[in-house]
Design a protein around this nucleic acid. Structure first.
Lengths: 218, 218
DNA sequence: AGAGAGCCTGTGATCGCTCTCAGCCATGGT
DNA sequence: ACCATGGCTGAGAGCGATCACAGGCTCTCT
């Protein structure tokens, strides 16, 4: 784990660096806001410990700037100010945690661990096959970059086919998984919706396997 | 946003509930560790405020159990113990933040906001989508720089949609997270409020996905 | 107590989606 | 080449989702 410590008070900076290195972290130290910001931008750190009172650029500004640039590395703020509004301001600027000096080293470590634990959020998978892609969360389908508008049923059908992309899927299987009341629904319904899909995503991508079902080009 | 408060001291629990509801949160309160754990498992909350000293099952155990079950909802711990090792223990059990009683309400709110931010896929202090921006801390919404005045419910709805910006959000999900008594409230209510929002922020920004829900232009 | 704001429900109209039906077409076996 | 089987498609009926409007209820502030 790589950490960036931005702290102008040399002694504290050194102490932090040594202590954190002893815990197995790789630690760089910057002594002012501007170099801190620059390093945070391009240093590839896993988290940042940021003093508020800095020469040049305050800690508040550093976080705000980082967040404005859509950089989301975890930031733990350090400050001598312990007023409730100072703390709230720091957090509302985009910091993830806030510690007031003097702080306990044990607490700093625990909070740092908590921050690192909450790593990058996993993004939901996007299903693709060739130039076709489907995003289940956004309910969006694109074909060679262009958006394709599908109805709810068409979407559900395509999603199922994409999950089995390349395999032959029978009409009964589709009725079971894409339609609610598979007994009541005629197999012809599937054929109809396959037809709709073909019109929207292109005929050649969705193959008929006579007597067996359908196959989406994988 | 749905919150779960687990606190056995009835007066503090009530006070928290009232205060947080005034901020637009949907808040449930549990008075002991076991019901708290059960609710956290299946309640679909966005975050949890958890007292350490609880009858039956301590707060430490509740978090540990939740994490063991791979449930990652953000947890803010409350405790009267302010020893550095108590704090470190709480965080190392899997809590995301730790506040010692007595705490400042302003700080609690700021830390809660930071926690919710961190849980979201993206985590700016101010939520934006295009020329629309919403500041949870200041309760302000601006559209292309001009302030938009929203009622409490409209604000909560927009905030939730913004946090899921780009994704399709179903009416039931909205009822769960933005409304208190989701069973008692008709889906039509959501439709009505979507209508209000559209009038205020512009029709084109808030798309209907028929049969699925609504999507805020991301 | 009264006024006003905000919140929710009920109703009716509209419109898009879903599915059925009936007939046509394609395929492959004889 | 012919037939049987299975697949495809255009048209349309019905239904369910969505939306807007209006009215009633409940709080809060004066």
């Amino acid at each position: 784990m790589r950490l960036l410590v931005v702290e102008d008070e040399a002694r504290l900076g050194k102490a932090l660096q040594r202590g954190l290195q002893a815990e197995g972290f790789v630690v760089d130290v910057a002594a002012d806001g501007l170099t801190g910001l620059e390093l945070a931008r391009h240093g590839g750190y896993d988290a940042m410990i940021l003093d508020v009172m800095l020469p040049g650029l305050s800690g508040y500004r550093v976080v705000r700037q980082l967040r404005a640039e859509e950089r989301w590395l975890p930031v733990l703020m350090l400050s001598a100010k312990d007023g409730e509004y100072d703390q709230a301001d720091g957090l509302d600027c985009g910091a993830d945690d806030y510690l007031t000096k003097p702080f306990s080293y044990v607490v700093l470590l625990a909070r740092l661990r908590a921050l690192l634990r909450r790593g990058a959020p996993q993004r939901p998978a996007v299903l693709t096959a060739g130039d076709l892609s489907l995003d289940p969360a956004r309910r969006r389908v694109t074909l060679a970059g262009a958006e394709v508008v599908l109805t709810a049923r068409e979407f559900a059908l395509l999603e199922y086919l994409l999950r089995r992309s390349g395999a032959v899927v029978s009409k009964t299987e589709l009725l079971d998984h894409v339609w609610d009341d598979s007994i009541e629904t005629a197999p012809n319904t599937v054929e109809v919706y396959i037809g709709y899909l073909r019109r929207k995503i292109g005929r050649e991508r969705l193959e008929t396997v006579r007597g067996a079902g359908y196959r989406l080009a994988g």
